[in-house]
Simulated scan of single mutants.
Amino acid sequence: MDPVPPPPEPALSTGAVARRLGVSPTTLRSWERRYAIGPAQREDGRHRRWTPRDIARLEEMCRLTARGVPPSEAARAALGAPAEEPAGAPTATPHRAPGPHRALTPGGPGALPLGEVRPEARGLARAAVRLDAPAVARLLDAALTEHGPVTAWEEIIAPTLHAVGRKWASAGESYVEVEHLLSWHVSAALHRVRPARERAGAIPVLLACVPGELHSLPIEALAAVLGERGLPVRMFGAALPAEALRDAVRRTGPRATVLWSQSRTTADRVLARSVAGIEWGLRGARGRSALLLAGPGWGVDAQGPYAERLFGLRSGLAVIEALVLGPAPATAAGRAAPAACGS
Rank of each mutant, 00 (worst) to 15 (best):
R102C: 03
T105K: 07
T105M: 05
T105E: 14
P106F: 06
P109C: 03
G110V: 00
A111R: 05
L112N: 09
V117K: 05
V117C: 02
R118E: 15
R118V: 06
P119Y: 03
E120T: 07
A121S: 05
A121I: 01
A121G: 07
A121W: 04
R122D: 09
A125D: 06
R126Q: 09
A127Y: 01
A128R: 11
A128K: 10
V129D: 00
V129F: 02
L131F: 11
A133Q: 15
A133L: 11
A135S: 14
V136C: 01
A137P: 05
R138V: 04
R138T: 07
R138Q: 13
L139T: 00
L139A: 02
L140Q: 00
L144W: 05
T145A: 15
E146N: 08
E146L: 06
V150H: 04
T151M: 04
T151G: 08
E154N: 15
I156E: 01
I156C: 01
I157Q: 00
P159A: 07
P159N: 08
T160V: 15
V164A: 12
R166C: 11
K167C: 14
K167F: 11
W168F: 08
G172C: 05
V176L: 15
E177F: 11
E177L: 14
V178Q: 11
V178K: 11
V178C: 12
E179F: 07
E179L: 13
H180N: 04
L181K: 12
L182N: 07
